[in-house]
Design a protein around this nucleic acid. Sequence first.
DNA 1: GTGTTTCTATCTATCGATAGGTAGATCATC
DNA 2: GATGATCTACCTATCGATAGATAGAAACAC
Lengths: 192, 192
Amino acid sequence: MSSESPRATEILDVAEALVRTQGYNGFSFRDVAAAVGIKSASVHYHFPTKADLGAEVARRYADRFIDALGAPADPEQPPTALLARYIAAFRHALVQDGQMCLCGMLGAEIGSLPVEVAGAAKGFFNRNVAWLEAVLSRTAAAKAGEATTVRARALAILATVEGAMIVARTLRQPGDFDRIAAVLTDAYASES
Amino acid sequence: MSSESPRATEILDVAEALVRTQGYNGFSFRDVAAAVGIKSASVHYHFPTKADLGAEVARRYADRFIDALGAPADPEQPPTALLARYIAAFRHALVQDGQMCLCGMLGAEIGSLPVEVAGAAKGFFNRNVAWLEAVLSRTAAAKAGEATTVRARALAILATVEGAMIVARTLRQPGDFDRIAAVLTDAYASES
DNA sequence: GTGTTTCTATCTATCGATAGGTAGATCATC
DNA sequence: GATGATCTACCTATCGATAGATAGAAACAC
């Protein structure tokens, strides 16, 4: 599956950074090639079409991201700690990388993406919601009652962190991400 | 200010729809011209550069959007009703138009936008936050205590609805927007 | 071991299409 | 006949993608 050559990995790294700042519609094979130090034809050798490259970037990003979250059912981690880790993962993408979440960017462009790329972005969101549902279902509030709202709350958390990245970046105040995250924590996690 | 010719308005309408589905980097003068039924050179007559057109689209969108929200201090409207109206405005953009929020899209692309366009998107968000702060400051919770969190909660509401549009569109389930909005209402408005 | 073939990764060169933008002619309206 | 709006025609630059060549490493045949 993921036995990529060093060069292919290099290309994926560069492409990911470009998509996360300029969007799928805004990056080109020549941009990627120039940053890697090869010709655009060589990029086509590793990834035949732009859709192939975009989809692979998205798949790799999703795998890495979900992997870093750890197991949502880990009995050693209380739900509040897992939620904090979830928020920290997005915070890292924003502050450390200084970029948008890749799939948040793709989600905004969803109406004009090749099907493979759109599907990869959709998969990222589905896996995020599933992870959050698993965490939220362990809270006291969830055990006490309504199962319907577990999915709704998972969707809300995902939407809020994705939106927070956009707002913080647009207002040029990275600290706004933390302000929004604090509201999230107060509203959802304090009831556990 | 806004004494545009019918043709200019037509161009702005088409450009807005294109930016909201393909992003600023993904639309072209030729796309706009073809949809209007004129040549791309004629679009340049009305809007000299792409940045001019993009910025004007964003300004018009922001004006129209904020205008539709009404006065946040209107004594006849309780804060809960105003918040419901706020969410309905985004819901309308998503369900009726079937498109992203224009400035949510621009916010995602913010790292690769001309300064005029980026500034217009930033202005949209600032006006949204100001409107929400005005509403939230009228709630009982706000009057009782902490003024710091009013801004934080305003940012969180904006982030959540922007993110909700992206998530609902990517998962191809418009109903998810309403699920997220319901969580928002429960968490923030029930304390008033 | 040597010679032959195949594979990998890259190159140069080019394709048709499209990008944003410009110059100058044309047409209509007043 | 002047003004506003649109046109034709074009420019330079770039897009995604392909073709054909090349150099070197690996695999194979004997």
